[in-house]
Protein backbone atom coordinates (compact mmCIF):
# COMPACT_ATOMS: atom_id res chain seq x y z
CA UNK A 1 0.00 0.00 0.00
CA UNK A 2 1.44 3.36 -0.95
CA UNK A 3 2.10 5.65 1.97
CA UNK A 4 0.80 9.18 1.98
CA UNK A 5 3.71 11.35 0.86
CA UNK A 6 4.67 14.62 2.42
CA UNK A 7 5.12 17.28 -0.24
CA UNK A 8 6.05 20.62 1.34
CA UNK A 9 3.42 23.27 0.80
CA UNK A 10 0.91 20.63 -0.31
CA UNK A 11 -2.06 19.39 1.64
CA UNK A 12 -3.48 16.15 0.21
CA UNK A 13 -7.20 15.56 0.46
CA UNK A 14 -7.11 12.00 1.74
CA UNK A 15 -9.48 10.04 3.95
CA UNK A 16 -8.88 11.80 7.28
CA UNK A 17 -8.88 15.21 5.57
CA UNK A 18 -12.03 14.42 3.63
CA UNK A 19 -13.78 13.36 6.82
CA UNK A 20 -12.60 16.46 8.66
CA UNK A 21 -13.41 18.79 5.78
CA UNK A 22 -16.83 17.42 4.97
CA UNK A 23 -18.95 20.18 6.54
CA UNK A 24 -16.74 22.91 5.08
CA UNK A 25 -16.80 21.37 1.63
CA UNK A 26 -20.53 20.74 1.80
CA UNK A 27 -21.10 24.38 2.64
CA UNK A 28 -18.90 25.57 -0.22
CA UNK A 29 -20.56 23.10 -2.60
CA UNK A 30 -23.88 24.73 -1.73
CA UNK A 31 -22.55 27.97 -3.23
CA UNK A 32 -23.43 26.54 -6.64
CA UNK A 33 -26.85 28.02 -5.89
CA UNK A 34 -27.48 31.76 -5.94
CA UNK A 35 -29.97 31.41 -3.09
CA UNK A 36 -27.29 29.78 -0.95
CA UNK A 37 -24.75 32.47 -1.81
CA UNK A 38 -27.24 35.16 -0.78
CA UNK A 39 -28.09 33.35 2.43
CA UNK A 40 -24.39 33.16 3.28
CA UNK A 41 -23.83 36.85 2.56
CA UNK A 42 -26.75 37.84 4.77
CA UNK A 43 -25.54 35.99 7.83
CA UNK A 44 -22.23 34.16 7.60
CA UNK A 45 -22.28 32.93 11.18
CA UNK A 46 -25.73 31.41 10.83
CA UNK A 47 -24.61 29.72 7.62
CA UNK A 48 -21.56 28.17 9.37
CA UNK A 49 -23.90 26.87 12.05
CA UNK A 50 -26.25 25.40 9.46
CA UNK A 51 -23.43 23.20 8.14
CA UNK A 52 -21.96 22.55 11.58
CA UNK A 53 -18.48 23.81 10.73
CA UNK A 54 -15.78 23.15 13.30
CA UNK A 55 -14.29 26.11 15.16
CA UNK A 56 -11.11 25.89 13.05
CA UNK A 57 -13.16 26.00 9.89
CA UNK A 58 -15.21 29.00 11.06
CA UNK A 59 -12.07 30.79 12.03
CA UNK A 60 -10.43 30.13 8.66
CA UNK A 61 -13.55 31.33 6.87
CA UNK A 62 -13.77 34.50 8.95
CA UNK A 63 -10.15 35.32 8.21
CA UNK A 64 -10.49 34.29 4.54
CA UNK A 65 -7.40 32.18 5.26
CA UNK A 66 -7.17 29.70 2.40
CA UNK A 67 -4.26 27.74 3.85
CA UNK A 68 -6.13 27.33 7.11
CA UNK A 69 -9.18 26.16 5.14
CA UNK A 70 -7.02 23.53 3.43
CA UNK A 71 -5.60 22.49 6.78
CA UNK A 72 -9.14 22.14 8.04
CA UNK A 73 -9.92 19.69 5.24
CA UNK A 74 -11.09 22.04 2.51
CA UNK A 75 -10.98 20.73 -1.06
CA UNK A 76 -9.78 23.35 -3.51
CA UNK A 77 -12.65 22.68 -5.93
CA UNK A 78 -15.20 23.75 -3.33
CA UNK A 79 -13.05 26.50 -1.82
CA UNK A 80 -12.89 27.91 -5.35
CA UNK A 81 -16.65 28.41 -5.18
CA UNK A 82 -16.18 30.43 -2.00
CA UNK A 83 -13.48 32.42 -3.79
CA UNK A 84 -15.94 33.01 -6.62
CA UNK A 85 -18.50 34.25 -4.13
CA UNK A 86 -15.91 36.73 -2.86
CA UNK A 87 -15.17 37.76 -6.46
CA UNK A 88 -11.65 36.37 -6.32
CA UNK A 89 -9.90 34.75 -9.29
CA UNK A 90 -7.70 31.66 -9.10
CA UNK A 91 -4.69 33.99 -9.33
CA UNK A 92 -5.99 36.04 -6.40
CA UNK A 93 -6.28 32.80 -4.43
CA UNK A 94 -2.76 31.82 -5.53
CA UNK A 95 -1.47 35.12 -4.29
CA UNK A 96 -3.23 34.76 -0.94
CA UNK A 97 -1.73 31.33 -0.37
CA UNK A 98 1.82 32.15 -1.39
CA UNK A 99 2.01 35.53 0.26
CA UNK A 100 2.47 37.25 -3.09
CA UNK A 101 0.41 40.01 -4.57
CA UNK A 102 -1.85 38.90 -7.41
CA UNK A 103 0.48 40.63 -9.87
CA UNK A 104 3.50 38.86 -8.43
CA UNK A 105 1.69 35.54 -8.59
CA UNK A 106 0.74 36.11 -12.24
CA UNK A 107 4.34 36.99 -13.06
CA UNK A 108 5.43 33.82 -11.24
CA UNK A 109 3.09 31.76 -13.46
CA UNK A 110 4.37 33.45 -16.62
CA UNK A 111 7.97 32.83 -15.65
CA UNK A 112 7.35 29.12 -15.19
CA UNK A 113 5.78 28.96 -18.63
CA UNK A 114 8.89 30.40 -20.26
CA UNK A 115 11.29 28.00 -21.94
Amino acid sequence: MSQTVNIPGTIMLDGPMATKGYPLNKMCYSFNNAAARNEFKEDEEAYYEKFKLTEDQRDAMRKRDVIAMLEAGGSIYYLAKFAGLLGLSVQDVGGLQTGMSTEEFKAFLVKQGEV
Partner: peptide, 23 residues
Amino acid sequence: ESDLSWHIANSLVEDGFDMTICQ
Protein backbone atom coordinates in the same frame (compact mmCIF):
# COMPACT_ATOMS: atom_id res chain seq x y z
CA GLU B 1 -16.90 3.08 11.26
CA SER B 2 -15.14 5.85 9.39
CA ASP B 3 -11.52 4.85 10.06
CA LEU B 4 -11.76 1.24 8.94
CA SER B 5 -13.98 2.32 6.02
CA TRP B 6 -11.36 4.73 4.75
CA HIS B 7 -8.65 2.15 5.25
CA ILE B 8 -10.63 -0.32 3.14
CA ALA B 9 -11.32 2.34 0.50
CA ASN B 10 -7.62 3.19 0.26
CA SER B 11 -6.64 -0.43 0.08
CA LEU B 12 -9.27 -1.27 -2.56
CA VAL B 13 -8.29 1.51 -4.90
CA GLU B 14 -4.66 0.50 -4.46
CA ASP B 15 -5.79 -3.01 -5.33
CA GLY B 16 -7.52 -1.93 -8.55
CA PHE B 17 -11.11 -1.52 -7.35
CA ASP B 18 -12.01 2.07 -8.14
CA MET B 19 -14.76 2.59 -5.61
CA THR B 20 -17.28 5.37 -5.31
CA ILE B 21 -16.57 6.71 -1.82
CA CYS B 22 -19.57 8.06 0.08
CA GLN B 23 -19.44 10.36 3.10
